[in-house]
Nucleic acid binder design. Sequence first.
DNA 1: AATTGTTTGTACCGATTGGTCTAGATTAGT
DNA 2: ACTAATCTAGACCAATCGGTACAAACAATT
Lengths: 193, 193
Amino acid sequence: MPWEKSFSEDVVLEKAMQVFWSKGFDSASMANLIKETGINRGSLYNAFGGKQALFVKTLLKYDSENRKTTLAKLEALDEPCRAICEFFDGIVANTVADTERKGCFLFNTVLACGSHSAEVNAIVANGLREIEGFFRRCIEVGQVRGDIRKDIDAESKAKAMVALALAIRVLGRGAYTEAALKTIAAEAKQLIN
Amino acid sequence: MPWEKSFSEDVVLEKAMQVFWSKGFDSASMANLIKETGINRGSLYNAFGGKQALFVKTLLKYDSENRKTTLAKLEALDEPCRAICEFFDGIVANTVADTERKGCFLFNTVLACGSHSAEVNAIVANGLREIEGFFRRCIEVGQVRGDIRKDIDAESKAKAMVALALAIRVLGRGAYTEAALKTIAAEAKQLIN
DNA sequence: AATTGTTTGTACCGATTGGTCTAGATTAGT
DNA sequence: ACTAATCTAGACCAATCGGTACAAACAATT
């Protein structure tokens, strides 16, 4: 038998993810992806199948490596209020630290949902659902522990928090200043007061 | 002298706007625009200059015909709280009524701000600023009249409202159900309670 | 009827799109 | 050495992109 592979699929996926993340699915060309991943055209098609399939794989990678782990870490704090605060502080920090202004890969994909396949839409819908679930659980646990008032509707506030998080990411791509983003984040935290 | 014109620029702009609105700048091709406007390729270039120039004109048309007039009508109510409520009821109603799920042309353009010219970015930035100003003035007037508590920060809440409005429009494009959008709208109204 | 400027249809341009394919180099196991 | 699998480099494909060009049809004034 000959060799198995000369490049790391994961490293290539990581680089491809950066391209899709910063340019979006439509604007990212195969020429871009070939150049940035560094591997050959044929190898790319052979290993991943095509542009759409490659995109799905990068999105899944982002979803499991960024979104899932971030939420898991925050939930592991076991301090609901702090978890929510750190979530919003985190996305503001990430947004202003990102000189490329590329936002959140998952949210960016939501915005262009019209032009994506059902498979992609299912991935982002699941991501949104889980972010909302994170907020809801934080609030409910906080209510049980007496940190959060019991008369607020956890699900309702969780949805509003998802909405504000998305808005921070979107407006942070250029339309709003850091100060404005921090203001919105502060309003999000205040939802549970 | 020959004739002046055989088609109405405004009617053509209206049709072109629909194309850009539902497909976005990048995905809308000149072939689409020619087909939907019904006028000839040469006439289109002669009358509007090109794709980018045509886009700017449709965006300005939307901004003045939709955004400005909507805000002006609400502000003319001279009932701040009702104006805010009707704003959010209105965007939810518009969102669910739109079977094409095309969202708000202005917000859609914000999302793709990275790929637009400085001119376009200035138009959307101005639009956002004016929406925020609308909310801020509503809150301030409400505070003067005693309808709204005076200890809330008008500018801060106004920014949060812009964020929630944007999120409703974006999530309404397919990711969230009508019920979820109404929940977010309710949270937005609650910001001034 | 001549003139003038617009509309129309279509051909055309170079560039780029996603995707396929071939040729040859490379490396490992037999 | 031989074979098998994968790599690279690049030619190639039809389709589409935004934009230009041009000739014919057209209408309104002179």
